[in-house]
Design a protein around this nucleic acid. Structure first.
Length: 514
RNA sequence: GGCGGCGUAGCCAAGUGGCUAAGGCAGAGGUCUGCAAAACCUUUAUUCGGCGGUUCGAGUCCGCCCGCCGCCUCCA
């Protein structure tokens, strides 16, 4: 099997073949930093984070560049509204974006260039374009002349005539063609401004990505991506500029992620249904959010709903639970255990899941299928776990360890089940000291300590919880079911879930987010 | 108007023309358990919006119809 990627340019899945064997250069358009990141930004960033992780899992060396558009009309307008400098607003939002993406557990790209730090390179590209006669100056503005690029429209699959016919934007009659777009615009007073051969001004939107991608990745590179909305005009224009400037092909594989709708409606400021990543992460775990997002193929539109995100949270729990159960059996006392036969079925199932996963991801990053492979493995793990609980077997436990490692590795390719994710901490099993009598005074003191912590919103003291759980065990030993149940209910009210297993009770803190 | 996409079980969602239509969530029954929870097992689409067509064979290809959506303007 080899990797196939859907290329917007050809409208089909193509075998992926990097320019330099073993090395991949990838560019994804990042956010315009004027407001908080919303779930759509999260989907775009996650899509390319997963592409990156999978390519590395496949053994490629990847250079991944994602820009920040930090000079733009929207930033200028927003800053004016806020009575703030455009540059300080951009700076703030860049920090906020980084914080949000980190909270989601996304890796930082190899390079995160900012438009304002590459003005010089942009001017150089514009000069080349003027020198080649495909751009022209008008009172300090510079425009790209669309009809000079024969391939214009090849990405969005539209001809110049179609585009002109569909244009609803008011026409600037100074331009040679309504579709000509600005490479450089003169700055109005108070706007950000840089010196240029055409007078003080600022760059047009599209030129930054051409200049920065070529700066970091070369004139031709492997993957260029972004949201589906960028296909036209942004990426179309990037191609026109870049290929005219260099005479070489620009991006080779064009990858575009679909949009997120909110309850079947487009997310927009006017509808007031913009879902900020921040707010979302206040109530769902990053893992749940990612499982939700990856549950739909990246090119398909995705509809957000409370029900769907809740379902993803429970699905995440299923994955985490399997890992936590594996840890538990590994801590079992095996002194008297047999080591009859090794657990061949599970080993086979691990390999099967890994193959299914790879096949799915090779097929244009089919994350829903990849997740299904992980859940299949979870079912196999759980089955083996059940048998292991009944008859401890060292070989079976070894196999389970391998299965857990495999599951974690597959998860890490999708960015779920990450080692340092906070949600995993809630699954700390209590080890119950056998036969130690809990003194009544200790018990009451523990209850009080837990109550205090709970009321002040502090994390509950684990050692105290342990005392309560141990006390409940004593009740159960004495068949004092009413006492045991009331203790369980009491802990439940304070966010501690107690569950009895064949080998004693285990407890966990309810996720603080739910 | 132009271009493109979607419609698969109660919900979400995979599905290179051909083994019994993935997976998750929810539901039902069962196993386990003092009870509960968790987990596991079984079960839930003779059928893929509708109607025709191509084919030995179609959810998968073609045509028409119905319903929904995106882009063509800043947008992830």
């Amino acid at each position: 099997m080899s990797l196939r990627i859907y290329n917007t340019m050809s409208r089909r899945k193509e075998p992926f073949d990097p320019l330099v064997p073993g090395e991949i250069r990838m560019y994804a358009c990042g956010p315009t930093v004027y407001d908080r990141a919303h779930i759509g930004h999260a989907r775009a960033a996650l899509t390319f984070d997963v592409v990156w992780r999978y390519l590395e899992y496949r053994g490629y060396r990847v250079t991944y560049v994602r820009n920040f558009t930090d000079v733009d009309d929207k930033i200028i307008h927003r800053a004016a509204e806020l009575g703030q400098g455009w540059d300080s607003l951009a700076e703030e939002q860049i920090e906020a974006y980084r914080r949000d993406m980190r909270a989601l557990g996304l890796r930082t790209p190899t390079h995160e260039p900012r438009a304002t730090q590459h003005i010089r390179e942009m001017i150089a590209v514009i000069q080349t374009l003027i020198g080649r006669g495909v751009a022209y100056c008008l009172d300090g503005d510079v425009y790209f002349e669309v009809r000079r690029f024969a391939d214009y429209g090849k990405l969005s699959h539209r001809g110049l005539e179609e585009l002109r016919a569909g244009a609803r934007v008011e026409v600037d009659h100074r331009k040679r063609d309504p579709l000509d777009f600005a490479l450089w615009k003169t700055s109005k007073p108070g706007e950000p401004s840089w010196d240029s051969p055409w007078g003080p001004g600022r760059p047009g939107w599209h030129i930054e990505c051409s200049a920065m991608s070529m700066e970091y990745l070369g004139e031709t590179f492997d993957i260029h991506g972004g949201g589906a909305d960028l296909i036209f005009p942004h990426h179309e224009n990037e191609i026109a500029q870049s290929e005219c400037a260099t005479g070489k092909p620009f991006g080779r594989y064009w990858v575009h992620n679909g949009f997120v709708n909110i309850h079947a409606e487009k997310m927009s400021k006017s509808l007031g249904n913009v879902l900020a990543v921040r707010e979302l992460l206040d109530r769902v775990t990053p893992g749940a959010l990612k499982i939700f997002l990856l549950g739909t193929h990246y090119r398909a539109p995705l509809d957000f709903s409370e029900e769907a995100i809740g379902s993803a949270g429970r699905a995440e729990h299923r994955l985490l639970n399997a890992l936590s159960e594996i840890r538990r059996v590994q801590e079992m006392d095996l002194s008297g255990a047999a080591s009859s036969q090794d657990d061949r079925p599970l080993l086979r199932q691990i390999r099967h899941a890994e193959r299914e996963f790879t096949d799915a991801m090779d097929d244009d990053f089919n994350t829903p299928r990849a997740l299904a492979a992980m859940f299949d493995l979870v079912r196999d793990i759980n089955t083996s776990l059940r048998d292991t609980d009944r008859a401890s077997d060292k070989a079976a436990i070894d196999s389970l360890r391998l299965a857990g490692d495999a599951l974690r590795e597959l998860g890490s390719v999708l960015g779920v089940l990450l080692e340092d994710s906070p949600e995993k901490r809630v699954f700390s099993d209590a080890r119950v000291a056998d036969g130690v009598q809990v003194r009544v005074s200790d018990y009451h003191e523990a209850r009080k300590a837990i109550d205090d912590a709970f009321q002040s919103g502090q994390p509950l003291p684990e050692d105290k919880v342990r005392i309560i759980v141990e006390r409940r065990r004593q009740c159960r030993d004495e068949k004092d079911w009413a006492g045991a149940d009331s203790i369980r209910a009491w802990l439940g009210d304070r966010g501690v879930i107690v569950e009895d297993t064949p080998r004693g009770a285990r407890w966990q803190l309810k996720s603080p987010r739910t």
